[in-house]
Amino acid sequence: MQTSSLKKFFKLYSKEMRELRPEILVVLIATLVLNLFFYFKAQELPAMVIVPSMMMLGLAGFLPFISSFKLLGREWNSNTIYLLLSLPVKGGNILGSKLLALLTQYLIGTVVVTTGGVILTFLLFPEPGLAETLRQVQASGIDTRLQTIISSGGLFYLMSLVGMAYIIAISFFSQLLGKLVTRFSGLITAIVFIATFWLMNKLMTPIWQQLGNYNQLHMSQFNFSIAAFNQLVGMNTLIMLAGTAIVFVAAVLVYNHKIEL
């Protein structure tokens, strides 16, 4: 029976998620332990609530990047690349499933850490303390409506997600180029990673500069608009998405046409 391409992709994705299970568990357990520790220890100093959240957010954001090297490199180390390359699927599916799994890892990690931070904040700042703080923030001119927080926060989060995809795509591309040589593979990977990052930044900088000019025209500290701010974040996200697509396609081409065993 012929299996659909989507089912094949999902099978590859499930395999990658199984490979990432230990890292995801590390973030979940560390968040729980650290939040509990701060809940019991920081009762006298509630401002400390920011510490575990920031620490764990750093870990949750950084781990998928580290995992990207593990996920691809392990295929060679454990010889499972023989299985992957003999499958009747193209590099787009193989690398795409890995990318999606790493983004899922990022999503799970950051959502868990943020949720843990919010719960800890509510526990350490019981009403009316938090409401009072929000009122003070609003009085200083910052828009604290839920709708604004969700739209701007959501866009910002989307930009971070695309940023992660961008870094992972560069990681895949540099690793695959590193695999084309038998000696100094790690060194080549590191050099290609830095070079690609630099080159892509060079390509995107003129667009970012245009965006900066637009930003100065429409937004200043005297003329701050949430809509213009959201537009700026959205444009940045789109530019990064285009960069991600370019590097990812390059990685897929290397996988399809250059990788040999």
Binding site: K11, K15, S78, Y82, L83, P88
Partner: peptide
């Protein structure tokens, strides 16, 4: 060489393989 995923059991390896081949 051994090219199967070591964390899989035989049923999982078979399930993985059967997805890709008609």
């Amino acid at each position: 060489i051994d090219h199967l995923y070591p964390w899989m059991n035989i049923a999982q390896a078979a399930d993985f393989t059967r997805t890709f081949y008609a």
